[in-house]
Simulated assay, not measured.
Amino acid sequence: MTSRVLVCALLGALSLSTGAYASPDDPKPGRGFEAPPGDGQRGPGRARHQLFISPAGEPFRAQDDAPYPVAAWFSGADANHDGALSRDEFVADAGRFFTVLDADKDNIDGFEVSAYEKNVAPEILLGANPAAGPSGSGGGPPRKRGGLVGGGMQGAAPYALLAEPQPVMGADADFNRRISRDEALKAARSRFALLDADQDLVLHLDDLPKTPVQDRGANRSPRRR
């Protein structure tokens, strides 16, 4: 089996896992790897799901009537369960997800990125998400979120705390199309600093910015159907 086929097979299997959230010391995937809902939740009669993509790029999904899944990510990353996410916990969570994606243990390469986009978080390839509101369709002024300024909500951005279209590739600091563990952890520290608005080195769930789809859902009127 070629390395490309092996990587795609491994990540394809991970995308179907339904286990409990892994701890930072356990690289197995968590609830974020439940199978994505078909073709991006489109079409009549298809069950609606909520999606959150963590700062490291891990997807978390929940039924439409469940709490928004940012809470599932936060709870799993909060290793000591004290209700506060420290920088070390935040970085450790990013390291855990890096280990999951680095299937061949030789840094994250283009094959693994492609497998991630196809099997783990295919929603980020669907383009602008109309659920994100005017900014998602390219209209209106740029929106500042979590220290980053973005005009259109592309890729992962509608589902994320930071306006990064592809957070896995966003860690590629030297632009060589490979992500090392050091790059992933450095990116995690930078992302933590952006989210830590009061610079007290801890994050609390209630203080995190809402993702565009979460914000849209909180303010939309009840369904008419």
Rank of each mutant, 00 (worst) to 15 (best):
P212W: 08
A173M: 15
D215S: 05
L203F: 04
A156K: 02
V5N: 14
D78S: 15
S221H: 10
L208H: 14
P167C: 02
K105M: 05
G139T: 14
G146I: 04
G12H: 03
Q154L: 10
P222W: 01
V213I: 11
K144T: 15
L162F: 08
N119K: 08
G146L: 10
A156Q: 11
P69E: 10
T18D: 13
M153E: 11
A13Y: 13
G95N: 00
E34V: 03
G147Y: 01
D102Y: 05
P36M: 09
T99Q: 06
P67F: 04
G45W: 12
I179C: 07
L195W: 03
M153C: 08
A103V: 00
V5M: 14
G139E: 12
S3W: 03
E117S: 02
S137I: 15
L51E: 06
D206A: 02
D82V: 10
K210A: 06
E58F: 00
P24W: 04
A13P: 05
V100R: 01
S54T: 08
A35Q: 15
L6V: 13
D39Y: 11
V168A: 03
D198N: 14
V168S: 01
D104E: 14
E183I: 04
K210V: 07
P167Y: 00
G76Y: 11
G136L: 12
N107C: 07
G30A: 11
L51F: 02
Y68E: 13
G150H: 05
A128Q: 03
P59Q: 05
V113D: 02
P122F: 04
G40R: 09
D215K: 02
D102G: 03
G150P: 00
H204G: 05
S17A: 12
L185Y: 10
A94N: 05
D65E: 08
V168R: 02
G76P: 12
P44R: 15
A47N: 14
R61P: 06
P69Y: 06
P59T: 14
D207V: 00
Y21N: 05
A103Y: 03
A171T: 09
G127V: 13
L6E: 09
C8R: 10
I179Q: 04
G140Q: 13
D174G: 07
T211L: 01
F52I: 10
R48K: 15
G170M: 11
G19R: 08
Q154C: 09
A20R: 11
R220N: 15
L85V: 13
A71Y: 07
L194H: 06
E58C: 00
G32A: 01
A66N: 11
Q166K: 11
A131V: 12
